[in-house]
């Protein structure tokens, strides 16, 4: 166990829970300008803006549902992942005691809350090796409200179409319609085309690690992202589902290969309280650089 690593991870959790990344804040501010003065939508975005400021200043959770605790870790070849996990678990316990995280881990059979966010599947780690010589840790806190409106479609589908981008587009917009305000919109979609049932959800969540204002390197998918954003924002669902011009802040789509028999379109919905942060670690496990 490394004290320096635990303290870096505690700071990463604190910052993720209490301080929304700049790309998200910029996007919410831009959305405010799109809503009519005096409308419920404008009111909602005003409260959201106030909330972001208070949380940052008070160093308290932006949202009380501090969600599933997801770590995405890139490590050099030979790095000790077991010690990392053990240390991250201690950091999560400490963050829970300090109130940066809610007691959010419940035994699915007995209903008992573990009280410290630790239990089977919590927190959740995704490790990847890379050839660089430093460690990069990204994390997301994904609340239950937005996770519940995630959905996986299979194509062809009589309502949406066949196994092509037209079918994909219609399926994604159906997810937006079904979500309404339940996922705390304006939301951000992470979408995966293809994969299997598990990798589809995994890849759709990883799309949410992209910067909101980035451009998809795949031109076809970039165009699809643009169309989804435009059409969703014409739906009129608006912030919180109150009606209005901003239904989505972003849509990020990736594609992975499928088997000939399957064609999944998997959508992970992220709320406006888009708590994702990341950092690189220096040789002593201190925080070298913030990533968002």
């Amino acid at each position: 166990m490394s004290e320096a690593l635990q303290s870096s991870l505690l700071e990463l959790i604190r910052r993720t829970s209490t301080d929304l990344p700049d790309d998200v804040v910029r996007s919410i501010e831009a959305a405010r300008g799109q809503e009519e003065d005096g409308s419920n939508a404008s009111y909602a975005l005003g409260v959201i803006d106030d909330n972001i400021g208070i949380a940052r200043k008070a160093s308290q959770p932006i949202c009380q549902d501090t969600g599933s605790i997801l770590f995405y870790v890139h490590v050099p070849v030979g790095y000790d992942q077991i010690t990392f996990e053990d240390t991250a678990i201690e950091a999560v316990k400490e963050a829970t005691e300090k109130g940066y995280l809610r007691q959010n881990s419940v035994d699915s059979v007995t209903g008992k809350n573990s009280g410290n966010n630790i239990g089977p599947g919590s927190p959740c780690f995704h490790f990847h090796q890379w050839r660089k010589d430093h460690v990069e840790v990204k994390m997301m806190l994904k609340g239950g409200g937005c996770e519940n409106v995630g959905i996986q479609y299979t194509l062809p589908n009589a309502d949406f179409g066949g196994r092509d981008l037209q079918g994909v587009e219609n399926a994604i917009l159906d997810a937006v319609l079904k979500a309404q305000g339940k996922g705390c919109g304006p939301g951000i979609l992470g979408v995966c085309i293809g994969g299997d049932r598990a990798s589809g959800y995994g890849h759709s969540k990883e799309q949410l690690l992209r910067m909101l204002d980035d451009a998809n390197v795949d031109e076809t998918l970039a165009a699809l992202e643009g169309r989804i954003l435009e059409k969703a924002n014409k739906s009129g669902i608006g912030p919180m589902g109150f009606g209005g011009a901003t239904t989505l802040l972003g849509c990020k789509i990736g594609a992975i290969n499928r088997v000939p028999a399957s064609y999944y379109v998997t959508i992970s919905y992220m709320c406006w309280a888009f708590r994702r942060q990341g950092c690189t670690l220096d040789i002593n496990s201190g925080i070298a650089e913030w990533l968002y």
Binding site: A44, I48, A55, Q60, P61, Q64, G145, C184, M240, C271
Partner: peptide
Amino acid sequence: FHAIGGAAQVCAQ
């Protein structure tokens, strides 16, 4: 009554 989802600090105040 609809509160603003995610606005846990405004509510807590």
